[in-house]
Simulated scan of single mutants.
Amino acid sequence: MALTEKAISTIKHMISSGELRPGQRLPPEKELAALLGLSRNSLREAVKALEIINVLEVRRGDGTFVTSLEPRLLLEAMSFSTEVHDAEFLLQVMGTRRVLEFYAVTMAVPHIGPETIARLRASIASVEDHEDVDALVKHDMEFHQLIISFCGNDYMASLIESLSGRTLRARTWRGLTQHGSVERTLFEHEQLVDAIAAGDALLAGTIVSAHISGVEQWLRHAGQEQKTSDVDTHS
């Protein structure tokens, strides 16, 4: 295992140093193993590990390549892990998203102009005419992504998008079960756009933080109700 970890570390260093670049083909296995002073088995294990986290891509019959290394691609493995955890873990995901999105929104506000503000208002208006949960969730995803895209930090934007995508089921569940969730979400979005239009970055960040916190509180309450129901069922 130590040799495999050494191989992983060495390959990662070659990438971070620029010796291997996005999209570049790695040297043939025999050549690379000799270069690193490792057995071919250790090298293969390292390549498998880096393939799992989307750092490397093995193309059968063509060789092994460094991926594009785009943030969205690298975050896919983490996205999968959040998908398979329970409500308690989902609360941790929501809390992380709340903290990150507060900063991302405050960073984005100075760069959002009238055209984008008009798009945000149009997005809200597109849902106001009908209380369809699917339309609301779609609007919610696109609304937040549009704002975050102006934060100036592609990695943060991709991370928030990844975390947001993993809470999609919870937000749909809330829309179906909590009375007034559609109106509440749209009202909070309107407040957020008003703050952005006024150029008040701190207020906008505070509003989005409270907005996400509302979903957290609902999820926590729903989880407690489910636990109580499970106890009653098995008692």
Rank of each mutant, 00 (worst) to 15 (best):
M78H: 12
L32I: 11
G61Y: 10
V58Y: 11
R44Y: 11
N41S: 10
L69H: 07
E70C: 04
L74P: 00
E88Q: 11
E88S: 10
S81Y: 10
G61Q: 13
V84R: 13
F89T: 01
G95E: 15
N41K: 14
N54G: 00
R60C: 08
K30C: 05
E51P: 06
L32W: 15
R40T: 14
L90Q: 15
L75H: 00
A87H: 12
H85A: 04
E57R: 04
E31V: 10
S68D: 09
T96G: 11
R40Q: 14
S39L: 02
R40C: 07
E29L: 08
T67E: 00
R59V: 08
F65P: 04
E45I: 05
M94R: 06
E51Y: 08
L36Q: 06
L91P: 05
L35E: 13
L75F: 07
V84K: 14
F89S: 01
V55R: 03
L74I: 01
E76W: 10
V66Y: 03
R25N: 02
V58P: 02
K48L: 10
R40A: 12
L26Y: 07
F89I: 04
R40L: 06
S81L: 08
N54Q: 02
E29V: 06
E83Q: 12
L73M: 02
F80P: 04
E88G: 05
Q92C: 03
E45N: 12
G37A: 09
K30E: 11
L91Y: 04
L35G: 06
P28Q: 11
H85V: 11
E70W: 05
T96S: 06
L69F: 02
H85P: 03
S68V: 03
R44C: 05
E31H: 10
S68M: 07
F65Q: 01
L26V: 07
R44L: 05
R98L: 07
K30A: 09
H85F: 09
L50T: 11
R25Q: 12
G95C: 04
L43E: 13
G63V: 05
D86W: 05
R59I: 13
E88N: 08
A49N: 11
P71I: 01
V55L: 04
G61V: 07
L38Q: 07
A49L: 08
L73T: 09
L36T: 09
M94F: 06
S79E: 15
T64E: 01
R60Y: 13
S79F: 08
V58K: 08
E57H: 02
A49C: 05
G37P: 14
L69D: 04
R59S: 12
S68F: 01
A87N: 07
V93S: 03
